[in-house]
């Protein structure tokens, strides 16, 4: 009697797997990504705050020279464990454009927590002009916008090497194992010792890549921890409710079956 239902359930499951686009379709062409264990993985993972704060430093000192992060505001940084005063200080390190003032002129002033992260270029054309025609993408949701997610970002940052024999790399491009097509306009962004971390962590390329990836994963999904915590409660609630509802149904149908 229940056979069609079971068959259909199995088929639906298979279909969802087949349709789950991100990981499966990525696997077709790109080289398998190294499996990096991040603190925020799994059903109950959370962001490693120390790592994300170091990642913020890497972003501010390295990435921010070319990449914007325009969906974020300095005020968001309190979620990484920074105090209000620290956030205010970080915001004040940049000059942002404001205005017009009473004379109708735009003017620059130090950043405030309610400002967006300052973009390195005023617009896309300026960004391309400064980067040989390539556009450094905004990093706000980059972890959600790339197949492979955080693993891919980490792999890309650590995947630079000399091209294998026989591979010609075009002028102004760089060889990267994990970039689709292997030729990327971005020069290797991370060099060992480039950043000096306040907490004394050794700034290896892998460490910086891991930290900045953690920071960007948080930037892309700042609601992740709250979402999972709420999800656990709701699934538990539904489990109990499901048991109760099933018992009621059994009871009601007892005299029919």
């Amino acid at each position: 009697m229940r056979r069609p239902l079971l068959t259909l359930a199995a088929a639906l499951g298979a279909a969802l797997l087949a349709a789950a686009p991100a990981p499966l379709r990525a696997a077709e062409e790109a080289i398998a990504l190294p499996n990096t264990r991040f603190s925020f993985e799994g059903l109950f993972g959370t962001f490693d705050r120390a790592s994300a704060q170091r990642g913020l430093q890497v972003y501010m000192e390295v990435c921010a020279n070319c990449h914007s992060l325009r969906q974020l505001y300095y005020r968001n940084l309190t979620a990484l464990g920074l105090s209000d005063a620290e956030v205010r200080a970080i915001a004040a390190t940049v000059q942002v454009q404001d205005g017009p003032n009473d004379e109708g002129q735009m003017f620059e002033r130090p950043g405030r927590p309610s400002d967006r992260f300052r973009s390195p270029f005023p617009n896309e054309k300026a960004a391309r002009a400064a980067n040989n025609g390539a556009l450094p993408p905004d990093l706000s949701v980059i972890v959600k916008a790339r197949e492979g997610g955080a693993d891919y970002i980490y792999a890309l940052l650590t995947g630079y090497s000399d091209p294998p024999p026989g591979v010609e790399v075009m002028q102004g491009m760089h060889y990267n194992r994990y970039f689709p097509g292997h030729q990327i306009a971005m020069a290797p962004p991370l060099n060992a010792g480039q950043v000096s971390f306040h907490d004394g962590t050794q700034a290896t390329v892998e460490q910086m890549a891991r930290d900045v990836t953690t920071f960007l994963a948080w930037a892309a999904e700042p609601e992740l921890e709250e979402r999972r915590a709420l999800g656990v409660k709701i699934v538990l609630f539904l489990t109990v409710l499901g048991g109760l509802v099933y018992a009621v149904k059994r009871k009601i149908w007892a005299d029919v079956h």
Partner: peptide, 26 residues
């Protein structure tokens, strides 16, 4: 349900309590 007569009467109490708890949850 009444057509099922006496069979339904038995356990009527448990169903009521169960329904109440389930309703409250919902």
């Amino acid at each position: 349900p009444e057509a099922h007569g006496a069979a339904a009467e038995h356990g009527e109490k448990r169903r009521d309590f169960l329904t109440l708890v389930t309703g409250a949850f919902a």
